[in-house]
Design a protein around this nucleic acid. Structure first.
Length: 455
RNA sequence: GGUCCCUUCGUCUAAUGGUUAGGACACCGCCCUUUCACGGCGGCAAUACGAGUUCGAAUCUCGUAGGGAUCACCA
């Protein structure tokens, strides 16, 4: 049997972190078993669905490199199939027409809440036809016995059938509800494993009745716990960005995000970080934890910085250029690339090096801060002398290093005493990569210019 | 409120009835050092609580507490 999974977001916003993780699990499980991973856009709620949201979801999936190769299924294009099944269930006697008005429904709802029994429409056992009246089609839930689901993540769970309500499968405007559409689509797309958030666990017990009535093969279920914020409540905006694509804009790499999301609620012993092929190799649904985990940006930062420092310089360079809209000449490009490994050691996200671009890229950069200029003025002799020495030094890191070292020995200075003004003159900053690298990558001309500048 | 689920360091997790309860992140300290970092070494820190079963419980059972999900003609 070929494994088929699907990720089924509704296009009402961006790709949420939780959704992204669900997609990752679906993606990995399918890849692991050489199966198919499908994406279905659940856009049956025309009022809330937008094309911008569809695009946002694709952006998110593409960024994480977990979009499907298969054709995207739009649920709205399949409504006829769903409706057909609703009437089939009606014909079989597994569903019924319900003529309850909104007011009547409201009353029933209040009563059902009071006595803890789900809504049972009075039309359940009447097979009347009122051709001129609006109706909805409700599924006739079994009223006795128990339904058991063997969930791969949650284990064996059973509920009493009497607590299942006769859910609406076809609205009065003849459109199918999610409860119907989702089941029919999963069946017709031949989905074998339904991997989704555990907010759907309760739905599973109701949806599975349709499958039973239709004599379809039951899929495997894996209901994964939701991601929570640091305070234990459902992840929301006040915990930080919940849109995965925001993390792209913030300067996280997709590989780091992928690895972090994967580790949130799943682990295979002995590994810290997972790149794609490793993840595919090791992934199993059984190792997903049952308890919800909390989103921790600090861990993501750590993972991102590790990925950043192991990435190819050209790749990071491209990300940075895109992010900052840079279009550099070759000499500028080489300086930036040369210093990139050093700069990346200092940051969690690559956007943090924004402040360093100027002194690296701009040939005529000079330190403009007033207080810093005072310090530079006080050290002009040192700067000029070092400039002179560097000017006549053959340009290797070793030579630059010994030039500086010899200078402080001759002048009986501590490195700190030349390091501070040198750093300010060259970078305009108090903190920077080590001076030898800075001097080497900037090159002799720029260095001597900056060291001889009259403030 | 009904139903279902969950609970190991602050966080992510490991430990299939026998471990000194392990690792990672964060935090703290020391070393390295040219600032900030990186790196190296070390430290702090957990089985929610209470019973029971057992020679032995984080692990099995029950209860309690806390947390979460859900209860639409939304998905």
């Amino acid at each position: 049997m070929e494994v088929v999974t699907r990720f089924a977001p509704s296009p009402t916003g961006y790709l949420h972190i939780g959704g992204a993780r669900t997609a990752i699990f679906n993606y990995l499980f399918a890849k692991k078993h050489n199966g198919k991973y499908l994406v279905r856009i659940e856009d049956t709620d025309q009022k809330r669905s937008t094309s911008e949201a569809v695009k946002a979801i694709h952006d998110g999936l593409n960024w994480l490199k977990i979009n499907t190769n298969e054709k995207i299924v739009y649920q709205s294009s399949r409504l006829n199939s769903h409706t057909k099944i609703a009437y089939e269930l009606l014909d079989k006697g597994c569903a019924y027409k319900c003529y309850l008005s909104n007011d009547e429904l409201q009353d029933l709802r209040i009563k059902s809440r009071e006595n803890g029994i789900p809504i049972k429409s009075p039309w359940r056992n009447k097979s009347v036809n009122k051709p001129d009246k609006e109706f909805v089609i409700r599924l006739k839930m079994p009223s006795e016995g128990t339904t058991v689901i063997n969930d791969i993540v949650q284990g064996e769970i059973s509920v009493q059938n009497e607590i299942l309500d006769d859910m609406v499968i076809l609205r009065s405007d003849k459109t199918p509800t999610y409860m119907l559409s989702s089941v029919v689509d999963d069946y017709e797309m031949a989905v074998t494993h339904i991997i989704r958030g555990d907010d759907h666990l309760n739905n599973a017990f109701r949806q599975i009745q349709i499958i039973k009535y239709m004599n379809w093969k039951e899929p495997y279920y894996a209901h994964i716990p939701l991601i929570h914020g640091t305070d234990g409540s459902k992840l929301s905006k006040r915990h930080g960005a919940t849109n995965v694509f925001e993390y792209h804009k913030m300067g996280y790499t997709s590989d780091a995000m992928f690895s972090y999301l994967l580790q949130l609620g799943w682990s295979s012993s002995n590994e810290d970080n997972y790149e794609y092929s490793k993840a595919v190799e090791l992934f199993t649904l059984e190792k997903i934890n049952k308890s919800p985990s909390k989103f921790d940006i600090k861990k993501l930062n750590n993972i991102n910085s590790k990925f950043l420092n192991n990435m190819d310089v050209n790749e990071v360079y491209d990300l940075i250029c895109k992010s900052f809209n840079l279009n550099l000449e070759n000499t500028q490009k080489n300086r930036l690339k040369g210093l990139l490994p050093e700069l990346l050691k200092r940051v969690n996200v690559y956007t943090e090096i924004r402040d360093d671009i100027e002194w690296i890229v701009n040939e005529s950069f000079i330190c403009t801060d007033n207080d810093h200029q005072k310090i530079l003025n006080a050290n002009l002799t040192i700067l000029n002398e070092i400039s002179l020495l560097l000017d006549s030094c053959s340009w290797t890191k070793d030579n630059i290093n010994s030039t500086l070292k010899n200078y402080i020995i001759n002048k009986n200075l501590k490195f700190k005493e030349i390091g501070y003004p040198l750093r300010l003159a060259l970078t305009g900053k108090i903190n920077s990569p080590d001076l030898v690298s800075v001097i080497y990558e900037l090159g002799c001309t720029i260095v001597t210019n900056r060291l001889n500048y009259q403030y």
